Simulated assay, not measured.
Amino acid sequence: MSAGAARQGAAQALGAPALAMGATFLAFGAAVAEAGLSLGWALICTGAVYGMAGQLVLLQVAAGGGAALPATIAATAANARFLPMAVAIAPLLGRAGRRWWALPFIAITPWAAGMRVLPTLPEPARLPWFLGFALASWYVALLTTAAGHLAAPHLPAELRAALLFANPLYFCLLLAADARRPGVGPALLAGVLAAPLAYGLGGAWGLPLAGLVGGTLAFLWGRWR
């Protein structure tokens, strides 16, 4: 069952999720090349950070000649949203001793797919399915980062900017499809209302703080209802 579930997860990752995520990482690879940083830097950043908000913050600091420690702190803050995501999906991944394998791969695309699919699977198949999906997604991220870095001279700046929004748009469409599920609608509305806060604060802390405010409002609304 485990091998079959892992293959099933990988197969599902290599469809629409791979196209959406690949477009975003293609643009990231091109942006790294434009900043004058190496292909190795791009691959290490994608493989280790594996979160576009944190990667873009790290790229901005590195391209400006910033120090390593502030850059690492900024990237960590930008990806702080992965902590509540990990807490939410952890109960679906089985025993605590085994689900630690999934934590390095908690990112928007695997998380969104896991939250939709894992409750429908028998418990022994859940972690293998998630690891199959997540590893396939991770390899797609690495390959498209490399492709973007190599193809940078042929990608106009406007196209790169548009490609960066492909994966967030895909994620938004998934959420919109689940808007009628309990708690999803208020969370979407709270996120929209908190978006100006992220824009106003900017920097590494804008996104996690806006998420904290929006998520808290959605939680309080659900408790009140």
Rank of each mutant, 00 (worst) to 15 (best):
A204I: 07
A107R: 03
A78I: 03
F171M: 13
R81K: 06
A20T: 02
L201G: 11
N79F: 07
W138Y: 12
P124C: 00
P208K: 01
T46D: 07
T76D: 06
L58I: 09
A13K: 03
P84S: 05
S2Q: 14
G66P: 10
A86P: 11
A5Y: 06
A6R: 03
G54P: 12
Q60F: 06
A31R: 15
A166L: 06
N79D: 13
A78Y: 08
A157C: 09
L56T: 14
P156M: 07
A71Q: 11
E34P: 05
L197T: 05
Y50E: 00
L143G: 13
W138E: 11
W205I: 15
W138F: 12
L127R: 06
F165I: 07
A67R: 08
H154Y: 12
G200Q: 10
L118N: 04
L174Q: 08
L163I: 01
R81E: 08
A31P: 10
G54E: 13
A80E: 11
R126D: 00
S137V: 06
F219Y: 15
T120H: 05
G15L: 02
W100T: 03
F130A: 00
L121I: 06
G202Q: 02
G148W: 01
L56Y: 11
F82D: 09
T144Y: 05
F105S: 01
W224M: 15
G132F: 00
A107S: 14
Q60Y: 03
W224C: 15
A42K: 11
F82V: 13
A210S: 14
P91V: 00
I44M: 15
A18H: 09
P119I: 01
L14T: 01
A90V: 08
A166N: 04
G215N: 12
A176D: 10
L118G: 01
I89R: 09
G185M: 13
A179K: 08
V49A: 14
M52N: 12
V61E: 15
R225G: 15
R180Q: 12
G54Q: 15
G4T: 15
W41E: 07
A161Q: 12
A35D: 04
R180S: 04
L197N: 10
E158V: 02
L103W: 08
G64Q: 10
L19N: 04
G114N: 00
A42R: 11
F130M: 05
A146P: 07
G203L: 02
W111K: 05
G65H: 03
L164T: 11
G148M: 00
L83Y: 13
A90Q: 01
I89Q: 00
A11L: 15
P122C: 08
Q8H: 13
A10S: 13
I108F: 04
V213H: 06
L207Y: 06
C172W: 14
G203M: 01
L201P: 11
E158L: 14
A20G: 02
L169M: 09
Q60H: 13
A102T: 01
P122G: 13
P156Q: 03
L207E: 04
A71S: 11
L135H: 09
L69N: 09
Y139R: 09
G214F: 05
P208I: 06
A190F: 13
L58H: 05
G15P: 02
A141E: 00
G215E: 12
A179D: 08
Y139F: 14
G191T: 13
L103G: 07
A210N: 10
G185A: 15
L93P: 03
I89S: 00
P168M: 04
T24V: 06
Q12R: 09
A18V: 10
C45L: 15
